[in-house]
Design a protein around this nucleic acid. Sequence first.
DNA 1: CCTTTATATAAAACATATGTTATATAACAG
DNA 2: CTGTTATATAACATATGTTTTATATAAAGG
Lengths: 112, 112
Amino acid sequence: MQSLDAAFLALADPTRRAILARLALGEATVMELAEPFDMTQPAVSRHLKVLEGAGLITRRVDGTKRPCRLAPQAIVEIDRWLDWLRQAMARNYDRLDDVLAEMQTEEGREKP
Amino acid sequence: MQSLDAAFLALADPTRRAILARLALGEATVMELAEPFDMTQPAVSRHLKVLEGAGLITRRVDGTKRPCRLAPQAIVEIDRWLDWLRQAMARNYDRLDDVLAEMQTEEGREKP
DNA sequence: CCTTTATATAAAACATATGTTATATAACAG
DNA sequence: CTGTTATATAACATATGTTTTATATAAAGG
């Protein structure tokens, strides 16, 4: 489950999500990715390292350039976890004790 | 997009994901949630605050107890974002420039 | 009332993240 | 070789998270 830590943490930063959004349009180099941000190149390099470490992007070597692209791996893992949670939630909504608890909140517990 | 920050950050912690996993079995009080963890009650209270702030759980009042349950809200938002990214990724895999880039990596760029 | 139970909050310690500047590396252009 | 371009890394400052202990609050049980 440790990779979920990395993946969710990577996605928790708006800059990194913006980078992913840019990569959704296609491959881009570090400089291309850095350009729209009010941020230095080393900062972007670090964000890319985080994204790569989380399995959200991959990088190839092209001369001095390191073009980045989206990688499906981490997303798949996140999806699996969310699917599981979503299903557990759905099952839960059918359980009687929850319904009863709800009723208790709405009715009996309104300060008498 | 700020709520995505909160939601992803909340999910980035294994303790908090474990709490959600426990809540998937049904409502639980703070003490019940704290019990399985090697952690003090205030620490769990803070985690719950983070989860609530992210829209991942809700709390009701029952005497001195504050039973928690899963909330769908944040999950829906995360899902939307991931759906978008997944689709962008899928579109991306069909693009010619990516295919060419791939070929270039595999073939031409193997140090001659 | 007084005590216990359930939870929250404050203060402080410590860890981790994020950004900066300065510098290294490595390929490319000439 | 030399200078330039693209990227990475190191060192550092600052901010943000996480956890603990100690304490507050507030309802419940006698």
